[in-house]
Each structure stands twice: as C-alpha cells, then as structure tokens.
Amino acid sequence: MASSYGTDADKSSLRGNYLAARRRIDPATKAALDANILKNLEGFDIYDGAHLVLAYVSYNNEVDTRSVIESAFAAGKRVAVPRVTARKHSMSFFEIESMDDLVEGYKDILEPRADITAPLGTKDFCGSVCLVPGLVFDAQGYRIGYGGGYYDRFLPFYPGDKIALARSSQMSSNPLPADSCDVPVDFIVTDTTVWTCR
C-alpha cells in the first residue's frame, strides 16, 4: 500500500488530500500509469470473462476509463454507463454502442444520451463486472468517493463482481473510515498488480 493520511483522518479531509495529490500528477506519468492499469485489467481473468462492463466515464484526473471502454468494445464486450438523476440522488446504467452515444450530463460528466431510454435492471447484470470509481482504497476494498453516494446506493443491489481502477498512490496503508452502508469492491486493479479484497 503506497500512501496514507492516517487512521484518524475523516472522509472529508481524506477526500481533499487525495484530490490535491491527484491534481499534482503530471500528464506523462498519468498516461503511463493508466496504460499499465488497462493492461492489468485486460489480463485479469474475471474481467476478461465478463460479457458486460458497467463502466463510468473518467473526468478530470481520474484513471482513464475512455480507453477501457474502447478496449471493451474492441474485445466484443457490451458496455453500459450510468446516467444520474440528481433530484432523486440515483443513477441507472444504460447500454451504449459507442462513445458517440454519450453527452455531457451531471457535473459535465459524459453519460448516455436522453434518447437511450431503457435502463438495465438487476437481471441484466448476470455475467457482468462493475467498475467503481474512488479517490482512495484500502486493502479490504473500502473506498472514499466524491461524497454523492450514488454508488453506495447502487452497489448493495448489484450481484456481480466490483472492480476498482486505481493508481498505486491511491492505495491507503491504513484502513479507511467505513460506515455500515459502505460496500467494498472485490478487486482493485492498479498499475502494478491486481488486489483481491474479498
């Protein structure tokens, strides 16, 4: 585990510290780390065997998921991306056929176009994996996200494998604060390895 801000840090201070650290990564380093994450993800058997990938579209300095989505399409996988309904604090996944199916939505993050109207349900998730965003993760798979709680509300009902994508600098050497409603990921794919959390 590469970094930590201590066990006494609360979620808000951890969020601020890791956001600041992420902003300091230079573009060349980011590109190299993210390319290694994609390579390790593509070589991960559980991901390789999934026919449907529930992805999110990266923004700011997040691990690049646009290349992950393009790679999934090239491998013949189906891809679904969330659309957020902010007034209900909820999100639903909609299948897309290409990056052209995405438009700016909540907080200017790319999401499926409004004319894609059939959200996937729990029965559609059989044989899928879900890529879960986060700022920092610990060895048990717990994470600090952005504070919106969208994945916290979705994951308890998701039946498949949950995979985080993280640079090594996003791994905490200390356990993160976790609430009873927090759902850990099952695996973390980093630029150096794949962590099994469960």
Rank of each mutant, 00 (worst) to 15 (best):
Y146L: 01
Y158I: 05
G16D: 14
T193E: 15
V84K: 10
V136K: 03
M171C: 10
V185G: 05
F187I: 05
Y150F: 15
Y146K: 05
G145M: 01
C181Q: 13
V84L: 10
D48R: 15
I109N: 04
P184G: 09
G160N: 09
A75V: 04
S12K: 15
T85Q: 13
V185R: 02
I109Q: 05
S71H: 08
F154P: 03
R113Y: 09
A75C: 10
D161C: 10
S168L: 14
D8K: 11
K11H: 07
L110G: 07
R153I: 00
A9Y: 12
I188P: 03
P82G: 03
L131V: 02
K107G: 08
S92F: 09
S4L: 07
F187S: 06
I37H: 03
P82E: 05
A21M: 12
H89E: 13
K123H: 13
T192L: 15
K39I: 12
L52W: 04
K30S: 13
N60K: 11
D10K: 07
Y146P: 00
E42F: 05
A86Y: 13
A21I: 10
Y142M: 05
G160C: 08
Y18A: 09
F93N: 04
E95R: 03
D179R: 14
D179Y: 09
I96K: 06
A50T: 02
G160D: 08
I96G: 04
V57F: 08
L54D: 05
M91C: 00
D10T: 07
K30F: 07
S13P: 06
R24Q: 15
V136M: 05
F154M: 06
V68M: 14
S92T: 11
D124G: 04
H51L: 07
R113Q: 15
T122Q: 15
N60Q: 12
W195A: 09
A166D: 05
S172Y: 06
D115K: 10
T196S: 15
V79P: 04
P159D: 00
G149I: 01
D101V: 06
R23M: 12
Y59G: 11
A139C: 11
T122Y: 09
R167E: 00
R153Y: 01
C197A: 09
V53T: 06
L110C: 07
K77N: 06
M1C: 10
Y151E: 07
F137P: 01
T7D: 14
F154V: 04
D182E: 07
G148Y: 01
N60A: 13
T29C: 09
L14C: 09
G134F: 06
F93T: 05
A164E: 00
A55I: 01
A86L: 11
D48M: 13
P177H: 10
G49W: 02
G148D: 00
I46E: 10
A86I: 10
G6P: 08
D138H: 03
A50H: 02
N36G: 09
T196R: 14
F157N: 15
A139E: 15
A2F: 14
L131R: 02
D8S: 12
Y150M: 04
M1S: 12
Q140P: 00
E104D: 11
Q170F: 07
R22I: 10
F44K: 02
G49S: 10
N60I: 09
V81H: 00
P112G: 04
G141R: 00
S172H: 07
A118G: 08
G149R: 02
V57K: 03
